[in-house]
Structure formats: structure tokens, C-alpha cells
Amino acid sequence: MMLDPGGLIATGLLATMLVTGAVALLVNDLLVAAALFGVFSFAAAAWFAALGAVDVAFTEACVGGALTTILLVAATFRTTRRLDR
């Protein structure tokens, strides 16, 4: 049951999302956090595609993978790069 490839891929993607999301919350360097969010979004997009929601995956890839990362980086440039200073 756990060994069917679809399930394994989905589990892997979900684990990636969990790990990148958690690490993005914990790191002090905001540019790193932005990059991790990009990874998170791509994993989410791939997972949506695996679920058969191609439209949602498409949107997530555009918005989360590209746009949000750009905006986060731009916002980081405007404010401060590190959280602890």
C-alpha cells in the first residue's frame, strides 16, 4: 500500500513542503526563507498536479514559484535581510 509510486511521490512532496516550510520559518536570513518558499511552492504545485488539479498546480507554480518569490526578495531588499539584527 505504502509502496505504490504515486503514494511515495505524494508523501515525498508533502515531506518536502513540511521541511521547507518549517525551515523557512526558522532561518534568520530572509533571502534564504524566500528561496525556501519557492521550493515549497514548487512542491505544492507538483502535489496539486499529482492530485489531478492541473489548474491549481498551474496557478501555484506561477504565483508561488515565481511571483511570490520575486515579491519576497524585493521586500527583503527594501527592509532588512536578517531577522536577528
Partner: peptide
């Protein structure tokens, strides 16, 4: 798949 939102983004 596609439409206004995706195209717009």
C-alpha cells in the same frame, strides 16, 4: 487548464 487567473499572472 488555464484561464484568466493563470494567464493574468
Amino acid at each position: 487548464p488555464g484561464g484568466g487567473f493563470q494567464g493574468g499572472v
